[in-house]
Design a protein around this nucleic acid. Structure first.
Length: 505
DNA sequence: AAAAAAG
């Protein structure tokens, strides 16, 4: 194992990491830190939950020196306010033993505190585009000395919705600078676009030669949701034994609000995060979820990228996302730092084409919808949901605690899996009627490019030379434990509906 | 097309 000290990281930063129990570097960190420290421009690609933040953050801190002059020297731009808070916290941790201060600049909050910190001489700014430009226009944020610039979730930042803002920001920062772009997904066209803002960048992809397109330690279950009462099923999943924190993604803000209200009505303690909420409420939900006070978070794609919460065991796509990149980022809220996780996706009738797209891009290899939901015990058994013998999926009693379901546990214990399966088979059509579209347990690569993924091993190449649609990064452990063995597990028997057990589970 | 991001 390579330690951060081995990589040439300053002792005070090594100490700050060690105080958090972090000693060994993850693959993406091993590859990018030695290049970032001397100022090489980098496009860094590694899978979700594999340590990209420190990959760019450590060089940023170290390059500013032990006692940087007051004033903004580094700018890290992120796509959402919650991610700004999170990256701010990471950078704040890295700088705790040196005279460098960090400030988070984002909207939905009072200007005052942010302006005060800037006036006090903060050197590192982490922020979202709108407020950054706002303060820059007001001449309260001088970026002209920002010689360290990072775009986190870079492909998103260079997406149409953000591109104009990013272009503007690049005209404001120092023109001779160190630029780093990081993301789990980096489609070829975006890499090409990115070069406009960089100087002779190197494209680092921390990938395992045997890897497929998705994270090895995330198990994927995909169900057709035709005429399925998704609220019921989700409520049922939330009662599963062994479930840790769970994030449920919806397509719209309204759907998120409706679901969180519904779940809370049913007695769960759920929180929501979406753009129609006040920033205060958003942050309260996130904090409650991180602290474990709420173990269910209902979110729009505002929470799809970057958000790092320990022990998220399940991600549920209430609605299938539109593209494979979003799918990958959503699923990536679980299975972080080497842990295992399960991603469950419900595919509505009108969304089958989206599943086809994602299935192809991520190489799940599930050709057609196969088993019906009710004939397959797999969702239930894999999630360890009590099987029950009622004809429909049960609802959590209002007053019941989310995870303590003694009767259901007893129910489940009383039921052998084979028997449960046949019982469910008999129940089909009288049940909820959902159908399993596919279930897979793939591993591996990133699906940045919907097109042809190249099988690449750990690779380093000039960004100039290639489509670079891969991502990849091995598993990594911030807790210093060895990464679980990675094995490519392709499609188990054609049409095989039975999902496998989660890797390492 | 939705969501995000300034207020």
């Amino acid at each position: 194992m390579t330690t951060f000290a081995d990589l040439g990281v300053d002792q005070d930063i090594v100490d700050a990491l060690a105080a958090k129990g972090i000693v060994d570097a993850f693959p993406i960190q091993e590859q990018t830190i030695p290049l970032g420290l001397p100022g090489q421009d980098i496009i860094g690609q590694a899978k979700t939950g594999t340590g990209k933040t420190f990959g760019f953050g450590i060089p940023v801190v170290q390059r500013l020196g032990l006692n940087p002059e007051p004033g903004v020297k580094a700018l890290i731009v992120v796509p959402t306010r919650e991610l700004a808070v999170q990256v701010y916290e990471d950078m704040d941790m890295l700088t705790q033993n040196r005279a460098t201060s960090v400030v988070a600049i984002y909207g939905g909050k009072a200007y005052e505190g942010q302006i005060d910190q800037l006036k006090a001489g903060a050197q590192i700014v982490v922020g979202t585009p709108g407020r950054l430009i706002d303060l820059n226009n007001q001449r309260l944020l001088d970026l002209s000395n920002a010689t360290e610039v990072v775009l986190d979730e870079a492909d998103k930042m260079l997406d149409l919705g953000f591109l104009a803002d990013i272009e503007k920001i690049f005209t404001k920062v120092a023109q001779v600078r160190h630029t780093q772009l990081f993301s789990a997904t980096m489609p070829g066209p975006i890499v090409a676009l990115a070069r406009r803002f960089m100087s002779n960048p190197i494209h680092i992809r921390a990938t395992d030669p045997d890897e497929g397109l998705t994270q090895a330690n995330i198990k994927h279950l995909v169900y057709r949701a035709h005429s399925l009462d998704k609220d019921e099923v989700i409520a049922r999943i939330l009662q599963a034994e062994g479930r840790g924190k769970t994030v449920v993604f919806t397509r719209t803000k309204r759907a998120a609000q409706k679901l969180v209200d519904e779940l809370n009505d049913r007695g769960f303690n759920a929180g929501a995060v979406h753009g129609d909420m006040s920033q205060e409420s958003r942050e309260r939900s996130m904090a409650g979820f991180k602290a474990g006070k709420k173990d269910v978070l209902i979110a729009t794609d505002v929470a799809a990228r970057g958000i790092d919460v320990d022990d998220v065991t399940h991600v549920i796509n209430h609605t299938i996302p539109d593209d494979e990149k979003t799918y990958l980022h959503r699923a990536g809220r679980t299975g972080r730092a080497g842990k295992t996780g399960i991603a469950v996706t419900f595919v509505d009738w009108d969304d089958l084409h989206k599943w086809a797209l994602i299935n192809r891009a991520l190489e799940f290899g599930q050709p057609e919808p196969v088993e019906t939901y009710s004939s397959s015990p797999h969702l239930f058994s894999d999630l360890d949901i009590p099987a029950g013998t009622k004809g429909r999926i049960a609802t959590a009693p209002r007053t019941q605690a989310v995870r303590t379901q003694p009767e259901r546990a007893a129910d489940a214990a009383a039921e052998g899996s084979t028997e449960a399966g046949s019982r469910r088979r008999r129940r089909r059509r009288t049940g909820s009627g959902g159908e399993q579209v596919g279930s897979t347990f793939a591993e591996g690569t990133d699906a940045a490019a919907a097109g042809a993924p190249e099988a690449s091993g750990t690779s380093t190449e000039r960004a100039a030379d290639g489509a670079g649609t891969h991502d990849g990064a091995g598993r990594e452990h911030h807790d210093g434990k060895p990464a679980p063995a990675r094995r490519r597990r392709r499609r188990r028997g054609a049409g095989g509906g039975a999902p496998t057990a989660p890797a390492g589970a």
